[in-house]
Amino acid sequence: MTIETYNPSEVTFPESVGKVLIVNNAVPQPADSGYEYTLMGVKQDTCVAVADSALFYACRSLGKSIVDADYFNDVLLYHDAVREDKEYLSDVKLTPEQVTSLCEETGTEAVISLDRLLFEMEKDVFTFPEGYVMGNIKVDIAGVVRCYLPGRSNPLATVYMSDSIFWNESADDPGMLKYILPDANSALCTAGDYIGAKVYVNFVPHWVNESRWYYSGMDSRWKEAAVATAGEKWTLASERWSAIYNGTSNWKKKAKSASNLALCYEMEGDLKKAYEWASLSYDLFKKNIKGEDNNTKLLELYVETLMNRIRSDQKLNMQFGEE
């Protein structure tokens, strides 16, 4: 089954930060840099890809994703690029004076800055003997995002990001392929939008999809408990699994029902009890099975996951100013 867990951000801002500013402090790479286009086996020497808009898309996507997380009181996108030099390969931090000036100008308490963003794009268009045309695009993305607070000599945090995005399309002829496959500029903008939406999790608490499982059995008590679990009636399910656990002397049934109880308590938000039951289940499997098997490996991962969730909840409480 799939569940959603609420996770803290990597960066913890002071409680005083309620309004943040997204800034583009990166220099766009030249249009003739980082783009290789092969057409029918021949590399094209006149291809260009303009990255200016891609930087804007990355900042806008980052800001929108942070807004959607509903953590800060307000998120602003700065209207101009900050840097005026042409050193696109350089990773240049904002100075303390720049941070103070930007915060004073916009009424914000923190700055999240895109300090560098580079793209490597490969496009390949070729034909198959059957007569149709295939087009592939791969964009590798690498960048640096930092958050700054006024009055600090160094950034609060630095995030290095890298990822790739792909397209693979086919058409009857090259003319039709142009309508299906994005052009170079559009591909870069999509890549910028993608990386901005991905990196936001470093700065705000966020939801993550995770997988869980539970054991079932053939007798009526197990089926009844499994129905309650499948229906997400967690209080009823925990009562049924407890009855099974307490009513059997079979170690394997105890181990499986203990694991299911851990899931019930996790879904009810009692992570400490969930950890205790998952640990009990793991210990039973470990004690009675020689060597490693799938059950032992799964329970070991689950125990670790629950411990990480307990730590995450402590960090979440801190980020929301709760004890």
Rank of each mutant, 00 (worst) to 15 (best):
G269P: 02
F203I: 00
D193R: 13
Y214H: 13
H206N: 11
D219Y: 12
K198H: 03
G247D: 08
S279H: 00
K256F: 05
L271E: 08
S257L: 03
K253S: 13
R221D: 13
Y275E: 14
K287I: 10
K198M: 10
A262T: 08
G192L: 12
K256H: 12
S249C: 11
L271T: 07
S216L: 04
S249I: 13
N209V: 15
A243K: 15
E232P: 02
A243L: 08
K273N: 11
N209P: 00
S211R: 08
G196N: 05
E276W: 03
S216M: 07
E239T: 06
Y265H: 11
G247K: 06
A197H: 13
A258Y: 05
T190Q: 15
N288G: 10
N209K: 15
M267I: 01
R240F: 11
G196T: 08
N250V: 13
A228Y: 06
I244Q: 02
Y245P: 00
C264N: 11
A228P: 01
N209I: 14
S257D: 01
K273Y: 01
A225T: 08
R212Q: 11
S220Q: 12
A197M: 07
S257C: 01
G196S: 10
A237D: 01
K253Q: 13
S281W: 06
W222S: 04
A255F: 09
N288K: 12
S220V: 13
D283N: 14
S249E: 15
L263K: 00
W251Q: 09
T229W: 02
D219P: 01
Y214G: 03
N246C: 05
W241L: 09
T235S: 09
